[in-house]
Design a protein around this nucleic acid. Structure first.
Lengths: 341, 341
DNA sequence: TATTAGCACTCGATTAAATTGAGTGCTAAT
DNA sequence: ATTAGCACTCAATTTAATCGAGTGCTAATA
């Protein structure tokens, strides 16, 4: 069932061509390539073979050939030329990711944006769920009977609470919270623990119980929300750019699909394999993605898989470049995160 | 130059119809409306008059009429039926805005999202520049020689700084920073002031000067960045929905335009008038928006204009609903902000 | 005098037909 | 085994024919 060397070369030439043009490629176009030096008739014969083997598809009798899912798969697995990001490109990436590292989440978001800038495809990133340990909790009075609750881990989350308490009371509560919660990871903190803390605070201050419950409720909720991983999409508009989505309805459909975070999370929920992986067309298992490929990579926080970075594009995407980009960027993220944790 | 009552009614009927269908409206369609009881011939005569006066346009000889910019303008100024948001709709809005008020910025973002959900048009919001006073500055050691800098105003901004300092040093620096900066508004804080603080810290701690300069640099930059207003766009994809953008190239062009924050800021930079204002077609002064209308409203933080909320849609947008929505939402924002400040 | 019925006319949109051309498969020659 | 040559196919493009919504104008009517 192996392909002859010649067939491989021809298949590769066809796919390379198709990736560039999005038009079915004919035998003549291939025979013109110097490197092969075969007549169109010969190419035609080989193409007929490749079609029979399932690597190519003829949209209609008098058209050229188009790669099938299996064709792309073979291309990705064995044919694709390695693509090297330029040194300057890489160092620009490193700079962009490191230089202004403001915060975990925004760094991750930026990684998604960079990937999409680099490849010009739609991308998504998921932020790490169950993030690192709580470093500090703070209650800052804002005046007008509201306080700002701030929880610091590698990320920072804040929210305003309406509560009429003094600065001293804020400090007191915060210090008790910190005593119990600092250096614990968010997913260790049960509601029971919070109740325990509540009793301690009740004993030490003269706050109204109702108010205290209220505040602790927010604390609990905020901490919990940090456990949830979120997902961001970039450059969705790029799908308008590819001829496979020149049908407005199709484009809109995909748009709507991608806009729903639940759908994206579904996509991002795939296995935790090593390295860059592609899912081509039907392999995605979703009708709406039959004409798309999804290329993803995991990044790690310390030693466990933390989140995922992915590219969504037409099946005839520039796999080589996408693979290289995801590889480089995910490794940069790993490096930066390792450094933090 | 005044329009007869009958002409007004006809113009209104035409625009209402056109808003609903996006198709040039013919005399027959209007004459069928019970409320007028005129024959199509009469309507035709009136339409011819209205066209001469510049309120209507005939795309070609054998088509119905379409409102001109002037027509829409007249409609918005004098004809449009007031639209009342339902009580439940309003209270749902209030809830959505208040209930989970997490933070100034996310509330503002949410307001934009709500407007777009309500109207189904593309919306934008700008966050307040020169935000309220600094409430607190915090330095939290994260371990691995990095610290998180946190600046609290009505918003919270944070960033990671690589600096090898102890928890005690953090506290000390933070307390000096707070002593000098808390309760000052961000735009009062000059670089000179920061340098002054630097000298005080130098005297009181044994930190390396270079490190200290580095940290204070980030403090200054972060505070400064809080002075800048940002802009967010929602539901850009909705432009794919309207027949006026069934031309993919036009849609893409507008998409690209709207994606660039600089462009949006330009749009949002308009005058600080009271109340909801519309700019129709050419009134926007940008070719790319010739087929769009922009409806905006300012919201206030305390007593000065703080930011802007806007809707971008086709010229034949549902002005009544958009005006009502913007009115209600901006007032809700005002209410919430007044409450905070 | 204002309104309306009636009719010829216009012109974009739709449908149908004709043409083109890229590409194939097969056969026979090299 | 390869290739030149040729008949054939079929989507895409071009051209022509038809349709119909809507108009403006005129003459009749209230």
């Amino acid at each position: 069932m192996d392909l002859s060397d010649r067939k491989k070369k021809i298949l590769q030439a066809i796919i390379d061509e198709y990736i560039g043009t999005a038009e079915p490629v004919g035998s003549r176009a291939i025979s013109k390539k110097e490197s092969l030096g075969l007549s169109s008739a010969t190419i035609r014969n080989e193409m007929a073979d490749l079609e029979e083997m399932g690597y190519l598809i003829q949209p209609h009798t008098s058209a050229g050939r188009v790669p099938s899912d299996a064709g792309y798969r073979f291309y990705v697995n064995s044919l694709m030329q390695r693509y090297q990001l330029g040194v300057e490109a890489i160092s620009r990436l490193q700079e962009a990711l490191e230089d202004k590292v403001v915060q975990l989440e925004s760094m991750i978001k930026r990684a998604g944006a960079l990937t999409s800038a680099l490849t010009d495809y739609t991308t998504f990133v998921t932020t790490p769920g169950r993030v690192s340990k709580i470093k500090k909790i703070d209650l800052v009075p804002l005046g007008y009977s509201s306080v700002m609750l701030i929880v610091v881990t590698l990320a920072v989350r804040s929210r305003v609470i309406n509560a009429d308490i003094t600065a001293e009371q804020c400090d007191e509560i915060a210090s008790i919270l910190n005593k119990h919660l600092a250096e614990h990871s968010a997913d260790e903190i049960s509601f029971a623990k919070i109740e325990e803390i509540q009793h301690e605070i009740e004993a030490k201050t003269d706050l109204s119980v109702q108010l205290l419950i209220n505040i602790l409720h927010f604390v609990y909720e905020t901490i919990n929300s940090m456990n949830e991983s979120d997902i961001y999409i970039n450059n969705a508009k790029s799908i308008l750019q590819y001829p496979e989505y020149s049908d407005l309805d199709k484009a809109r459909e995909l748009f709507n699909f991608l806009e729903d975070k639940e759908n994206l999370k579904l996509l991002a929920s795939a296995e935790d394999e090593e390295g860059v992986k592609a899912k081509i067309g039907k392999e995605n298992g979703l009708d709406i993605l039959n004409d798309c490929s999804l290329v993803t990579v995991n990044y790690a926080l310390g030693d466990r898989k933390a989140g995922k970075l992915g590219v969504i594009g037409p099946k005839r995407m520039n796999y080589a470049k996408v693979f290289a980009s995801l590889d480089v960027i995910s490794k940069e993220i790993d490096k930066i995160l390792k450094y933090y944790l």
